[in-house]
Amino acid sequence: MFERDSAISTMSAQVARIIGTRIASGEFRPGDTLPIESELCQAYGVSRSTIREAVKNLAAKRLVEVSPKVGTRVLPFADWNLLDQDVLSWRLNAQFDERIVEDLYEMRQCFEPRACFLAARDGSAEDLDRIRRRYADLVAMLNQPALAAGAETEFHLAIIAATHNGLFVTIGGAVKTALRVSFSLTQRSAKTTDLAPYEAVLSAILERRGEAAAEAMRRLLDLSRQRVLEALARGPVAERG
């Protein structure tokens, strides 16, 4: 029986998280068949309906495939829904290493600078005011690490929302997960957050200088990536959100 996590709403979601993390960590590898239903019930101390709902959840995320003849089989990595917030979170918590950091920042470099360009070009006055307020929150909470992490996340998400591009907003969910887990690693750093790169992004967007905003975000992401890699080199994450 596992210890129930009050932050997760249902038992089936908790079981899905445990099995999903075991898949993401490589304990269950692509092509492997999961233990049969009765064994999972016994292992986690839950009912068959809970296991079935958990497996259904994992199948929807393309981590597993259920076949009457074969059982529940782990799918190849290429089939996984990697932008699903749960899948990304499980991967980050299971194997937060240099490779996944590089993958994340390559993804962010592909669309966040463009998001800045679009926010500067197309963002409404209300959008720009929201970005300004999220930056003010970051400044105000700088000495409160847990709150600063949320404020930094919301600053990035406000920029993405200002694009009015539905696909960008969807990817923003993955950014939110990545930022939360990344911060759990970097919050141990003694370095004070340098606000200048954020100010450069903010100023360029407010002045509607799209190209300058994109370039400022590229520089901000480069600095952020370096910070995460340096923190990673100091040792594993002690506790992740």
Results as ranks from 00 to 15, higher is better:
A233C: 04
P236D: 06
R234H: 05
F2E: 09
F96S: 07
E154P: 00
N93D: 08
G173F: 02
D79P: 00
A146T: 08
V70G: 00
L82E: 14
W80A: 04
I23L: 09
E199I: 14
V201M: 09
F111Q: 00
A125T: 09
W90S: 05
N143I: 00
K176V: 01
L128S: 01
A94K: 04
A161I: 02
G150K: 07
R17D: 12
F77T: 11
R133C: 08
S49N: 11
T72M: 14
Y135F: 15
D32K: 02
R209P: 04
F111E: 06
D79R: 15
D86Q: 09
A216W: 02
D222A: 15
R52M: 10
R114H: 11
Y44H: 10
R29G: 03
A196P: 02
E215C: 04
L232T: 13
D137C: 08
R62A: 15
R99G: 13
S184G: 13
M11T: 12
Q95W: 03
Q226V: 00
A24Q: 11
L195W: 06
G150R: 12
D79K: 13
P35S: 01
L167D: 11
R234Q: 13
R48S: 15
R17G: 01
I19V: 15
A120I: 03
S38L: 01
L195Q: 08
S184Q: 09
A54C: 06
V15N: 07
S9I: 08
R121C: 02
D32C: 03
G241R: 14
T72N: 06
Q42G: 00
I131E: 05
K176M: 11
T193Y: 05
E53F: 00
E199R: 14
L202A: 04
Q226T: 07
S182H: 14
E211V: 10
K69F: 08
P30H: 09
A196G: 01
V15T: 04
A78K: 11
A162L: 04
C116W: 13
T21W: 02
T33W: 00
M1H: 01
R219F: 04
L167S: 09
L128T: 00
A120Q: 05
A119P: 01
D222V: 10
E27R: 11
E65G: 13
V64E: 05
E39T: 05
F28M: 01
L82I: 14
T10G: 03
V237R: 15
T50K: 06
G235W: 06
V46Y: 02
G166N: 10
L229R: 03
